[in-house]
Computed example of a mutant assay.
Amino acid sequence: MKKRLLLLSVSAGAGHMRAAEAIRVSAGDADVEVTHLDAMDFVTTAFRKLYTDFYIKLVNKAPGLWGYLYNASNEAQPDGTMERVRRQLERMNARALLREIKAFHPDAIICTHFLPAEMLSRLIRKDELHCPVWVQVTDFDLHRMWVHEHMRGYFAANDEVAFRMRAQGIAADSIHIAGIPIMPAFAQPLDRVACAREFGLDPQRRTFLLMGGGAGVGSMDAIAKRLLALEGNFQLIVLTGKNTALLAGLKTLAEAQPGRLFPQGFTNQVERLMACADLVITKPGGLTTSECLAMGLPMIVNAPIPGQEERNADFLLEQGVALKAFDDVTLEYRIRHLLQHPAKLDDMADKARKLGRAHAARDVLNIVLKDLSLPQTTPDESVTTS
């Protein structure tokens, strides 16, 4: 029988889910059965609303409060009263998840969120779970809640995260610097000219891609209007996701800006749009920024929420692959500057290409397969061990 690999994520934000899906898709026809479960499908309704809906509302409506909670929980003592109460509530509300895990009989588990990792650590300690459990950190930062005993190994985005893991007491030989898993599509060589023709774009013109909500920088239609008022030979792609009203408004605006504005609704071809772009304007989530780096795309990160997004933004700025805009005026200034200094944009792109880890999902999978003594999907020379 094939070995069974279980991927556990949490739908609090899309990044954890996308990382797990990237690993699942990378398995291809490997000699292993891979299943991905969202832990929130196996908890009580009240707990799901608290853990996912409340989180999303908090980061959108009260980012300062979220930043406080992020830092406070990072500094909290694991044996403190509040931490013990939190873990007890999690266990009470996730019994169905634990039953599902035991029924699946996995040979190995990869957690792309800290919640299931924390629960499984307790099961291993109680001798109720006997398969190896791996943890994939999905940001360029390490929060204390990712760190648990009895894990087989940890996957870090970069050297600094690995260093922080060692500082938290994780054994060096169990830390693997593999990057953040992204879909294999972002590792494919894509022809800019061919992709541009698919979307009616001019492949010779500077192209900016605007993604995400833009909280704190104004609405996406307002940003588009502001940027299109600038002088310069560039075109603008705006991804509106499932916001049909925004898409309709931008299409009307595009009619008045022929050949300059290209609004796009929900798409599964983000990598093909990125292949047309010279710069991405986005929120600095771990997955989105990793996709940009894999495509060699510099970024303007807009209004990062306190906590993990701020840490992601700090890393990108330090590496010279991104600029930060905290409001729409700053964003306009950044775009003006890059249009006037194209060499700066080219230098950022070169650094992004060198920093990207397009095969992170494959490399993570290969380490786990090797631990199970299974054939690897492809050579993993690019992955290093701390």
Rank of each mutant, 00 (worst) to 15 (best):
115 L>S: 11
263 P>F: 02
381 E>L: 15
362 R>F: 07
192 R>P: 04
230 L>T: 13
52 T>M: 05
269 Q>P: 00
9 S>W: 04
230 L>A: 14
224 A>I: 01
372 L>V: 11
125 R>S: 12
278 D>G: 05
199 F>V: 13
312 N>E: 12
96 A>G: 01
130 H>I: 10
70 Y>T: 09
265 G>W: 01
336 R>E: 14
119 M>K: 04
322 A>I: 07
273 L>H: 06
3 K>W: 10
323 L>Q: 04
367 I>C: 05
125 R>W: 09
22 A>C: 08
190 L>K: 07
264 Q>M: 06
81 T>V: 13
328 D>M: 12
306 P>M: 01
276 C>Y: 05
84 R>C: 15
129 L>S: 03
286 G>Y: 06
244 T>H: 13
213 G>N: 14
292 C>G: 02
124 I>A: 08
298 P>A: 08
246 L>F: 10
380 D>S: 15
334 R>C: 15
358 A>L: 11
364 V>W: 01
248 A>Y: 04
62 A>N: 12
247 L>I: 04
73 S>T: 15
211 M>S: 02
19 A>Y: 03
374 L>I: 04
344 K>N: 15
220 M>H: 07
197 R>H: 15
238 V>E: 00
102 K>V: 11
185 A>T: 15
273 L>P: 09
269 Q>V: 00
375 P>D: 06
110 I>K: 06
271 E>C: 07
312 N>H: 12
204 Q>E: 13
351 K>Q: 06
215 A>K: 09
146 W>N: 07
80 G>S: 15
36 H>K: 12
31 D>R: 12
47 F>G: 04
168 Q>P: 00
51 Y>V: 03
138 T>A: 00
98 L>I: 13
327 D>N: 07
74 N>M: 10
109 I>P: 00
290 S>A: 07
283 K>Q: 03
239 L>H: 06
81 T>D: 08
236 L>R: 01
378 T>K: 14
235 Q>K: 09
193 V>P: 00
240 T>K: 09
380 D>P: 00
280 V>P: 04
186 F>G: 03
98 L>F: 08
47 F>Q: 01
165 M>Y: 14
229 A>P: 01
14 A>Q: 12
229 A>K: 10
283 K>M: 02
91 R>Q: 10
23 I>L: 06
370 K>M: 07
374 L>D: 03
338 L>D: 06
97 L>Q: 05
